[in-house]
Deep mutational scan, measured.
Amino acid sequence: MEQGTVKWFNAEKGFGFIERENGDDVFVHFSAIQGDGFKSLDEGQAVTFDVEEGQRGPQAANVQKA
């Protein structure tokens, strides 16, 4: 798993971006967030995640709040 920081996340649209430790950004969809209840992330929040190849390039999977 990688570690990163939430760059931004739009809860209304259900997606955002995580900044990886290497400085690259990776797309995150709310469906990739682990846990119960409303799935959202806060700007600046530390997270761990896997990276999978999506239809439009790399995207975060198995996102967990650190």
Rank of each mutant, 00 (worst) to 15 (best):
M1V: 15
M1N: 11
M1F: 11
M1C: 07
M1R: 15
M1S: 13
M1E: 10
E2C: 09
E2A: 11
E2N: 13
E2R: 09
E2S: 09
Q3I: 15
Q3R: 15
Q3T: 15
Q3M: 09
Q3P: 06
Q3D: 07
Q3A: 11
G4I: 00
G4S: 02
G4W: 02
G4Q: 01
G4L: 01
G4P: 01
G4K: 00
G4H: 01
T5W: 13
T5D: 04
T5M: 11
T5A: 07
T5L: 09
T5N: 10
T5Y: 11
T5S: 09
T5V: 15
T5Q: 10
V6C: 07
V6M: 04
V6Y: 00
V6T: 06
K7R: 11
K7T: 04
K7S: 05
K7W: 03
K7N: 03
W8I: 04
W8V: 03
F9R: 01
F9K: 02
F9N: 00
F9E: 01
F9G: 01
F9D: 01
F9W: 14
F9L: 03
N10M: 06
N10Q: 06
N10T: 07
N10W: 12
A11E: 08
A11R: 15
A11Q: 13
E12S: 13
E12R: 14
E12N: 13
E12F: 14
E12Q: 12
K13I: 09
K13E: 05
K13N: 06
K13S: 07
K13A: 08
K13L: 13
K13G: 05
K13H: 10
G14F: 02
G14C: 03
G14E: 02
G14A: 03
G14V: 02
G14R: 04
G14I: 02
F15L: 06
F15Q: 04
F15K: 02
G16D: 00
G16H: 00
G16N: 00
G16Q: 00
G16F: 01
F17E: 03
F17W: 09
F17V: 08
F17A: 04
I18S: 00
I18D: 00
I18H: 00
E19L: 15
E19C: 09
E19V: 14
R20Q: 07
R20S: 07
R20D: 05
R20A: 06
R20Y: 07
R20T: 07
E21T: 13
E21A: 14
E21W: 09
E21K: 13
N22E: 09
N22R: 12
N22Q: 12
N22T: 14
G23P: 02
G23C: 06
G23A: 10
D24S: 14
D24H: 10
D24K: 14
D24F: 13
D24M: 09
D24Q: 14
D25E: 12
D25A: 09
D25K: 09
D25I: 11
D25H: 12
D25M: 13
D25R: 10
D25Y: 11
D25G: 05
V26Y: 04
V26R: 02
V26E: 02
V26F: 05
V26P: 00
F27M: 03
F27D: 01
F27K: 02
F27T: 02
F27E: 02
V28P: 00
V28A: 03
V28E: 00
H29M: 05
H29Q: 03
H29P: 03
H29Y: 05
H29G: 03
F30S: 07
F30W: 14
F30G: 04
F30T: 05
F30Y: 15
F30K: 08
S31C: 05
S31R: 10
S31D: 04
S31Q: 07
A32D: 07
I33K: 01
I33H: 02
I33E: 02
Q34K: 12
Q34C: 06
Q34I: 12
Q34V: 15
Q34M: 11
G35D: 12
G35K: 07
G35I: 10
G35E: 11
G35S: 10
D36T: 12
D36R: 10
D36P: 12
D36Y: 13
G37H: 06
G37N: 07
G37A: 07
G37P: 06
K39V: 07
K39C: 04
S40A: 11
S40M: 10
S40H: 10
S40W: 11
S40C: 07
S40D: 07
S40E: 07
L41V: 05
L41N: 02
L41R: 02
L41F: 05
L41C: 03
D42H: 14
D42L: 12
E43D: 10
E43W: 14
E43Q: 15
E43T: 15
G44M: 05
G44F: 06
G44Y: 05
Q45A: 10
Q45D: 15
Q45N: 08
Q45R: 05
Q45E: 12
Q45P: 02
Q45H: 06
A46E: 11
A46G: 08
A46M: 14
V47S: 00
V47G: 00
V47Q: 00
V47K: 00
V47Y: 03
T48G: 05
T48K: 10
T48W: 12
F49D: 00
F49H: 01
F49K: 00
D50C: 08
D50A: 11
D50I: 15
D50K: 15
V51T: 07
V51G: 02
V51M: 13
V51R: 04
V51N: 03
E52M: 12
E52A: 09
E52S: 09
E52T: 11
E52W: 11
E53Y: 13
G54R: 09
G54S: 12
G54F: 05
G54N: 07
Q55C: 08
Q55S: 14
Q55N: 12
Q55Y: 12
R56Y: 15
R56Q: 11
R56L: 15
R56C: 08
R56K: 09
G57E: 03
G57H: 05
G57R: 06
G57K: 05
G57T: 04
G57L: 04
G57N: 04
G57Y: 05
P58K: 11
P58E: 06
P58F: 10
P58D: 06
P58R: 10
P58G: 05
Q59N: 06
Q59E: 09
Q59H: 09
Q59C: 07
Q59T: 08
Q59F: 13
Q59I: 10
A60D: 01
A60E: 00
A60G: 04
A60Y: 00
A60I: 02
A61K: 14
A61I: 14
A61F: 13
A61E: 06
A61V: 15
N62D: 04
N62T: 05
N62W: 06
N62I: 04
V63M: 02
V63Q: 01
V63P: 01
V63A: 03
V63D: 01
Q64G: 09
Q64A: 10
Q64S: 11
Q64P: 01
Q64L: 10
K65F: 12
K65S: 10
K65A: 11
K65T: 14
K65C: 07
A66R: 12
A66L: 15
A66N: 11
A66W: 11
A66Y: 12
A66C: 08
A66H: 15
